[in-house]
Nucleic acid binder design. Structure first.
Lengths: 125, 125
DNA sequence: TTGACATATTCCCATATCGGCATGTAATGT
DNA sequence: ACATTACATGCCGATATGGGAATATGTCAA
């Protein structure tokens, strides 16, 4: 088997950075393909192909108007993603609390004990 | 060019359904690889490979304990995804309001006017 | 040391991607 | 009818994937 199709999922469709840009661009208003091309600086065929993928998973809707086709993003289709991610919210809050506690403990210690430099709390990724 | 690497992004890493399952499974507690294999019913090498991808993008952390390696998901790394999706929240609320208004209008109409069958509000995808 | 256990890595293959370029198609204007 | 505009589609090539099977690495135990 190979990687899952880009059209198998909102998750897969959204994995492509350009498609994310397109979605953001089309979030507020309906736009013809030409404007997307101009605004994002992509090749027209490329945009058309991305739009096809997005349409297949319901992330954008299309409407014809003369010779133009107006696209808009269907925000509803992004909700599953949002909800899946939200599932982890409590866990990253836990982690933040731990970091916070650690920081507070360190501050207490350094303010009572000495003039140590503040420790670097940045997580090494 | 081909598709972006699965390790280029949290978005790309998370596009794979099995990886999402692994992340959920490892959200609450640290677990050795063997338990993941047993719990999700995947082949061991497959799990190891997925874990490698997840680790490369910081979605999981690993700790050695004897001959086992304990993995846990690093929820922090999921936040960018959550925040990106949240960007569209106001738009899907707009859409919901529109659907709601439409439904209410329809109800008003049908209750004053007649016994028309309720229209199908399901969006055709 | 030898063996068993826990994971990781490698090789192979079928599949699909994305970009670039060329071409097809449909609607409009003259 | 013809040219033009606005998109869509087809073909190509380079690349990377994920599963399966086999094998390597590393750790503990006797």
């Amino acid at each position: 088997m190979a990687r899952a199709s880009t059209t198998s999922d909102a998750f897969n469709a959204v994995a492509e950075p350009r498609r994310r840009e397109i979605l953001s661009y089309l979030a507020g208003a309906e736009r013809p393909v030409g404007e997307i091309v101009a605004a994002l600086g992509l090749e027209q065929p490329s945009v058309s192909k991305h739009l096809r993928v997005l349409r297949n998973v319901g992330l954008v809707r299309m409407r014809c108007q003369g010779r133009q086709k107006l696209y808009r993003t269907n925000a509803e289709a992004i909700r599953p993603l949002h909800e899946w991610a939200a599932t982890f919210e409590r866990y990253w809050q836990h982690q933040l609390n731990r970091v916070k506690e650690l920081a507070e403990a360190t501050v207490r210690q350094s303010s009572t004990a000495s003039n140590f430099p503040t420790p670097n709390l940045k997580e090494k990724q």
